[in-house]
Design a protein around this nucleic acid. Sequence first.
DNA 1: ATTGACTTTCACGTTACGTGATAGTTTACT
DNA 2: AGTAAACTATCACGTAACGTGAAAGTCAAT
Lengths: 255, 255
Amino acid sequence: MKRKIKEVADLAGVSVRTLHHYDEIGLLSPDTTTEAGYRLYSEKNLEVLQQILFFRELDFPLKKIKEIINSPDFDRYQVMLQQRDQLLEKRYRLDQIIIAINKTIQHMKGEMEMTTEGKFEAFKERMLEDNEQKYGKEIREKYGEETVETSNAKWRGMSQQDYQAMLRLEQELFELLEQAYATGDPGSDLAQAAAAKHKEWLMYSWSEYSKEAHAGLAEMYVTDERFTAYYDKHVKDGTVFLRDAILIYTGKKES
Amino acid sequence: MKRKIKEVADLAGVSVRTLHHYDEIGLLSPDTTTEAGYRLYSEKNLEVLQQILFFRELDFPLKKIKEIINSPDFDRYQVMLQQRDQLLEKRYRLDQIIIAINKTIQHMKGEMEMTTEGKFEAFKERMLEDNEQKYGKEIREKYGEETVETSNAKWRGMSQQDYQAMLRLEQELFELLEQAYATGDPGSDLAQAAAAKHKEWLMYSWSEYSKEAHAGLAEMYVTDERFTAYYDKHVKDGTVFLRDAILIYTGKKES
DNA sequence: ATTGACTTTCACGTTACGTGATAGTTTACT
DNA sequence: AGTAAACTATCACGTAACGTGAAAGTCAAT
């Protein structure tokens, strides 16, 4: 009952390439091949594959798995303990990193609160909001049994998509801004289109839009040199121009 | 005050190769070079390098760091939250693996138990006695005979290594708890991490996990003064805080 | 002028495959 | 039997973040 490679792959839930790879590195070579060079896996081969996949799930490197498989009297118990120690160490390091990033986040929150002056309250509040608070409840209600981590994964998947779209939007914004700047008029159609694009871009990180917050952000752009440097890099005096366009767009200024 | 590469490397605690690499991928190129092609780093370059290393310590991939560095408008706060989510997910996966390997080890031990008669017999007996004397009754009453028996069985099969690992876990739990308590929020990531750690610690003596049992145990902690004394010794009011964290963790309470 | 410390640019090795590209083989169907 | 679909084979490059030489040129001190 020899099986060809795809059947084995499907059976074990791995890719054909994986089996090729295991053959390449001498981890699992089928004990028969047809004269055309096709790999034929025996039942025994399948058992070994199961073993391999078992260890792989426990995050053993293939090299170690090879050692274990190739010498049946290898002390599996000791190896397990050793592997667990390594995993524990790994998690310890991971925990340290998480603690550090949590501290940083706390710190950033503190900084942002200090510079808050009530004008951009809505804006900053949203920025400060913890995603856990934001989505936690809703997700819990919807998915019930699922852990917070899993829910976070879903959120992350969304935000990555959003992130791609955001980059595209930003690029479009710059192009628009450049063309609009050539008109010299922040009230021009092109400039207003740029302001609209900017709003669209914002909406990826804002949950609600308000003209006030948008106008406020525009003002902040001009005040904060990091922003001016960023926008002016693409278009000379782009920051001021964009601000004016946004002020008109939000009705805070006459064209 | 331009510096040559080795000086910069020593100053920052990285290898020369690393700086070469950062130059190669366009992450950090010195803004001056001698005519012989020597890289000369300015103060500004050093500052950027610090930034890079900061993000690197938080496990950001270099690609992301490059994006962040190149655009000041990039929302660092959101990026931090996102990165934390990824780290948390990573840790979750790691935890699953650790749990799996622990189970495997327990299983192997069960098999070995039949053939190899106890080496740490005295030690184990003492642990059992202790456990029984201290909490035996309550646990029995609340969670039934079965849980206790399997728990004891686990204790019996426990080796020195396990015991060491358990102590270590406990230590980590206290550290986490301390930090979490500082946040004041039992729903915070740190507090939830502490709850997760507590669960993991439990898994060394529980054969099966259920949210109910975990939550119940947390309640018991607060009621039983022996436990409160134990946890409060490390962190003031730590018991109540830990209970709340666990209740949220097990979904028995809203954050 | 020599030497040792330092610098440069290749370029391969690491982990566990993914992803084509190109070509030969087997199976199914008309 | 002929052909197309499905399968298989062997390269071989790409990934992340550098480590580790190798060969050759540069700089500073003796």
